[in-house]
Design a protein around this nucleic acid. Sequence first.
DNA 1: ATGGGGGCCTGCCGGC
DNA 2: TGCCGGCAGGCCCCCA
Length: 283
Amino acid sequence: MPELPEVETVRRGLEPVLQGRRIARADIRRPDLRWPFPENLGSRLSGVRVLALRRRSKYILADLDTDETLIVHLGMSGRMLIDGATTAAMYHDRAALEPHDHVVLDIEGGARVRFNDARRFGMMDLAGTPSAEAHRLLAGLGPEPLGNGFSADHLAAALRGRRTPIKAALLDQRIVAGLGNIYVCESLWHARIHPARSAGRIARARVETLVTAIRQVLTRAIAAGGSSLRDYRQADGELGYFQHDFNVYDRENQPCHRPGCPGVIRRFVQSGRSSYSCNTCQR
DNA sequence: ATGGGGGCCTGCCGGC
DNA sequence: TGCCGGCAGGCCCCCA
């Protein structure tokens, strides 16, 4: 479910709860999510201090004082729920466990973090901290779209000669890491590029526009998520879910938002997934 | 090598 | 009201 902005929002929301704090007890309530949990996950997390929370693409990385890093992916439906006091302002009552609460972390000082994932497409694994980014799931990832490694030069080189639709190329995490269906659709609309256009047939100037669009779309979404964190207690402690303001996603048959464009947003299927675009202003 | 499709799960929503 | 099909923001893996 969550793409890079949602994962970053979750990371920021977890930071005040976890960073520098000790996990008093970890309750692992089933043997697996998408894959089996690592051996003895509960005991390897219990009594352990969290040194830092990082993000790589859609993965959250929690560096532990055991020289291990907890790698978490939220999959499609994964959520982090926070209960209990960390600061007075963040206090609300500790909720009872709910269905699909698969991992429960009781934090020293009284907070509780629950990993809830109905569809169980999420994952958790442990890796040695120095080699965490060499984990098989992270090793092949392309550059962070908001980092220096993502540039028009990089994207143009990655797209060169590719006949696949640009939509599929941007979903390919080896080309750029962290985009999902929504933000790809939104970025292509901003750049006025049609999702079905062949990746290798986008002029250099338009690739530059696309890079800028991707950065802006993600940056704005993170800002929107950040603003939702300030009052997340109203959202029952659920992190990373906020009101989005999409221009094309889930707007089938609604008018294009581009000023002066008479077009209507259409939905069509590409490699089994919904694409949304304005066929008037996106080419 | 590259691209497309299946599969993993559960929940929800719209239509009949 | 109830049932059923379709759909969901991810990603690995297999096959052509």
